[in-house]
Amino acid sequence: MTVKPALWLRHEVRSTERRTPITPADAQLLVADGFAVTVEESSQRVFPVEDYAAAGCRIVPAGAWVDAPEDAVVIGLKELPDAPAALRHRHVFFGHAYKGQPGAARLLRRFADGGGVLLDLEYLTDDSGRRLAAFGYWAGYIGAALAVLHHRGTLDTPLRPMTRQELDTLLAQESGPVSALVLGALGRCGRGAGDALVVAGIEPTRWDLEETRDLDRKALLRHDIIVNGVLTTVPVTPFLTPPDLDDPDRGTTVVCDVTCDVGSPCNVLPIYDSTTDWSHPARRLHDDPPLDIIAIDNLPSLLPEEASVAFSADLLPHLKTLGNDDSPWQRADRLFREACASST
């Protein structure tokens, strides 16, 4: 008999994180299926906590997960707070801890010290390695939109959450001719980026594996805007390097790196060393000719409702298999244990 674990939706500590991995509508479906769902209060979550209460969830204060029962599965999206130092629960979120990213070793050590487990959403995949739940489409859409608005000089800061209709209205405003390149155009992120550019009146150049495998760097640098949606798990030849910024023939003035794999040896755009944020979404990397980088690691939170609804729908059927021995979570569990072993 499959044991249904208690699910605990935590508050996100990052102030700009308004998404949720479980919507109230999907929480109601989980409750109806026999899951006990606890939801922490959160003033920033796009859905009010009252909607979860109406769905049959138990409501607790923000941060209460640290005292949750041992068998609770704590579910979130972004980073955990610094305390407690030792993590004893099973946690579901994007850990960014398996490719040597900054802070990865410390996070894995916290799990090892507490006996907990990281079930990383990035590695919840099918047999072919494709993610089963992802924000990629909306990350690409918003990343491309920000790149266009910044290139036009019409990007208002600090950034604020909005609806797709509001964003599309901004994109549809007329502007001069612009050339744009989408890297990883056939993936979720690339498709989202391409759709946003079309809304902006730009028919982008679309490159995927064939074009990036044998990169024409000169052709790449002729585009005004580059949106990168390529995320690799093994080191590859970078698409752009610091010397490319000095190329006098470079036409590119805005790069949006949707993947934000900064600090990892797998980073395909090692031209910057830190992400940007909602207050300062673009940072100047080179003055003559100018080039700005946009690298925000929670882009979909700018369209929190649309992104959450799509992600929650993807995740829901897999949450229902959390207690199964043959579920994709077992693969995520093995990867976690391998990462812990290799980091010691």
Rank of each mutant, 00 (worst) to 15 (best):
T16G: 13
L87R: 00
L146T: 00
F94R: 01
H96E: 06
R188Q: 09
T163F: 08
P248F: 01
D120E: 14
L159N: 14
L132D: 05
G153N: 00
G263R: 00
H280I: 14
G251Q: 12
G251D: 08
S312M: 00
G34K: 05
Y98E: 13
R58A: 12
Y272T: 12
A282Q: 07
P204R: 08
L171P: 02
R45Q: 11
T205G: 09
P204H: 08
E306K: 09
V262I: 14
L30S: 06
A32C: 05
P265M: 02
A83S: 14
H150T: 09
L121T: 05
P102T: 07
K4M: 03
L316I: 08
T125I: 14
R88V: 10
G176V: 07
K218D: 15
L108I: 01
R250E: 07
A53M: 04
C340K: 05
F35V: 04
T169F: 10
L124Y: 01
T163Y: 11
R152A: 01
G95H: 08
I202N: 04
D195P: 14
T233N: 14
Y137P: 12
G140T: 10
F93A: 03
D33C: 06
L108K: 00
V3N: 15
R88D: 11
T125A: 15
T237H: 07
K218C: 15
L9M: 08
V255F: 11
C260H: 03
G187L: 06
S175Q: 06
K78E: 07
G176Q: 10
L319V: 04
H318G: 11
P84C: 08
I22D: 08
L302D: 06
E306N: 00
P158Q: 05
P84M: 04
T252G: 03
F311T: 05
L170T: 05
G184Q: 03
V73K: 07
D71V: 07
I296F: 05
V3K: 13
L221F: 01
T253H: 10
L335W: 05
D214H: 15
G184M: 01
D257N: 04
D33I: 03
V39L: 11
D288N: 13
D326F: 02
L121S: 04
F135L: 03
W329S: 06
R18K: 15
A105Q: 06
P177R: 02
T16S: 15
S264I: 07
L299T: 00
F336W: 04
N267I: 00
A313G: 08
A282M: 07
F93I: 00
R284D: 15
E79A: 15
E12C: 03
L108C: 07
D26T: 08
S343R: 06
D249M: 15
D71S: 13
L209G: 14
E41V: 02
L167A: 09
P177S: 07
R284I: 10
N267H: 09
A36G: 13
V254N: 09
V148T: 12
A6T: 13
P317S: 10
L107E: 06
P289D: 12
R284G: 12
D82Y: 07
P204I: 10
S15N: 14
H89L: 02
E41Q: 12
